[in-house]
Design a protein around this nucleic acid. Structure first.
Lengths: 158, 158
DNA sequence: CGTTGTAACTACGCGCCTGTCACGCCTCGG
DNA sequence: CCGAGGCGTGACAGGCGCGTAGTTACAACG
């Protein structure tokens, strides 16, 4: 009956990770399925759209060579500070410290004063990648919650 | 007696890494001492100033949460593309691909078109940190090559 | 030339992260 | 109500990146 959210294996395909990664991250409290946790073998984890977004951020971080340890801190920061308008923000990490920026100028300022390496994650493209993957891997007849995704008439990107 | 270069333990103090890291990196071909390699127990590795620079870049990358695997690619790229004027350049990595930039504007362009995470390493501060550490940890009586530091040598490789 | 010091070498093991396999359990379709 | 398949789970294996401890070998000093 078309419950809310996304199940484990489907999440893996959408985000582009392996099931073991998803499982490991859930067990180590990186990302728990916020709709429904697993209650033993045979049950199902239910991930929300926001979960997918965070997972995609992590996936991008890992692809960029960032350690999982730093990714944990990044997600922690995002959970506390990122509001609803995701697409316009960029996550900037200076070592263990994270900052959210809304314009390019802020990034330049951070570059000039920053004494270390900066890891920059533009969140706009992340949303686009995610939505594209969801639409592509969404089998017909499973049109569950349209509004879980911040609809925004996705045809902009394609 | 005042041979060229820096020895292993001293390199560790200057760069801020452990001896095991230096050793491991040398054995796994990340950074070999370019002046004199080890020839068995009791011998000494001799690192050049340029080696220290690369080591410091790696150290900063690790501190920023970048994996050693990506750091290897970064160093590889730096070796091939970074010339003499180090301080004005910034290394920008987009996943496994690296680019060197000379101005802030280039970074902005990369940010806008980049589809993934950007790792930015301003090299100027790296040089400053390195020189400061060298001067601080250089005990009197060991005033060997003052000009091993960037005296803008005519040839790069030796 | 023997002793001491230092630095490189070796062996062992840990923690992290991930892949693989076998196994129960729940849900769905009939 | 029953069978089939999907899904979470636990156990194990394995590579990476080191830390720790002990050993070996060169170099300087007396």
């Amino acid at each position: 009956m078309a419950e809310e959210g996304f199940r484990g294996p489907q999440v893996c395909k959408i985000v582009g990770i392996t099931y073991r990664q998803l499982d490991y991250w859930a067990r180590t409290n990186l990302i728990r399925p916020s709709i429904a946790d697993a209650k033993g073998s045979g049950t199902q984890r239910r991930y929300s759209y926001r979960d997918l977004l965070e997972l995609k951020v992590i996936k991008n971080l890992l692809d960029a060579g960032v350690s999982l340890q730093l990714a944990r801190k990044a997600i922690e920061y995002i959970r506390q500070n990122l509001g609803d308008d995701v697409a316009t923000a960029s996550l900037v990490m200076n070592g263990p410290k994270s900052v959210l920026t809304r314009s390019d100028g802020e990034v330049i300022d951070l570059m000039r004063q920053g004494q270390g390496v900066l890891n920059i994650v533009p969140l706009g493209p992340v949303v686009e990648q995610l939505d594209a993957a969801i639409h592509e891997l969404r089998p017909a007849g499973a049109a569950l919650q349209d509004e879980a995704a911040p609809a925004k008439a996705a045809s902009a990107g394609g």
